[in-house]
Nucleic acid binder design. Structure first.
Length: 216
DNA sequence: GCGACAG
DNA sequence: ATCTTGTCGC
């Protein structure tokens, strides 16, 4: 499988794959939810996937792989920097996740094909994007309490939702990646963040990849 | 044209 | 992402 090496090629790949995104809920509520994240130190990187039981939030599996960067960080082409290592980590898992909770955007992307869409389409696994800041789109004010939401709108499209996961904290930005609808994605994020601003999956994956960077 | 810009 | 101290609060 060829991988783009230039921005123009990467954009062409996104334009080609964007039509494969499925915005529909599939199957029963997920049992195994995976958090994915990548840490960097110069040209080195460590990618981690941590699988948790959705109900108990107990860890059931994890995989951490180290490597080197192969694509620079370019807003809009972020996926090309992280997808290769994340796919390798996913292959190392013993447990196949039912949902991928990605660190970044899904449809809330200039070409409607952010990291979560990319990973979802390539693996066929339902995926959602949870970002700490917005990339595209804007939203009105939302309630102060946990569970409050506001539509994230870009142009004339609702591309995601600003979600308050705890009373008074800054909202996180949730968008559809693949094989899930926005309401369901928001519900999953709230379930995964019972005590902190970020989903437990994201926190575990962040910790895992940072530790993975220290080893090598 | 100018600035903004997931991680 | 990463560079970085102390500090306020449960």
């Amino acid at each position: 499988m060829d991988w783009p090496s230039t921005a123009a090629e990467a954009i062409a790949v996104q334009e080609k794959l964007r039509g494969l995104v499925e915005v529909v809920d599939v199957g029963p509520a997920p049992r195994y939810v995976a958090g994915l994240d990548v840490a960097y130190e110069g040209d080195r990187l460590a990618a981690a996937v941590v699988v948790l039981d959705r109900m108990t939030l107990d860890e059931v599996d994890r995989a951490v792989v180290r490597g080197a960067t192969t694509f620079p960080y370019v807003p809009g082409l972020f996926a090309f920097r992280e997808v290769p290592a994340l796919l390798t980590a996913l292959e190392q898992l013993t447990t196949v996740p039912d949902l991928l909770v990605c660190d970044g955007q899904g449809l809330a992307h200039p070409r409607r094909f952010g990291l979560a869409c990319h990973l979802g389409v390539l693996t066929g696994i339902p995926a959602i994007g949870v970002a700490k800041t917005t990339f595209v789109g804007a939203h009105g004010r939302l309630g102060w309490e946990r569970g409050a939401t506001a539509e994230l709108v870009d142009g004339d499209e609702v591309v995601g939702a600003a979600v308050r996961t705890q009373d008074g904290v800054k909202p996180v930005y949730v968008s559809v990646g693949h094989r899930v609808t926005l309401p369901t994605a928001v519900q999953r994020v709230l379930e995964l963040a019972p005590h902190y601003r970020l989903p437990e999956t994201t926190k575990q994956a962040d910790r895992a990849c940072r530790d993975g960077l220290l080893d090598g």
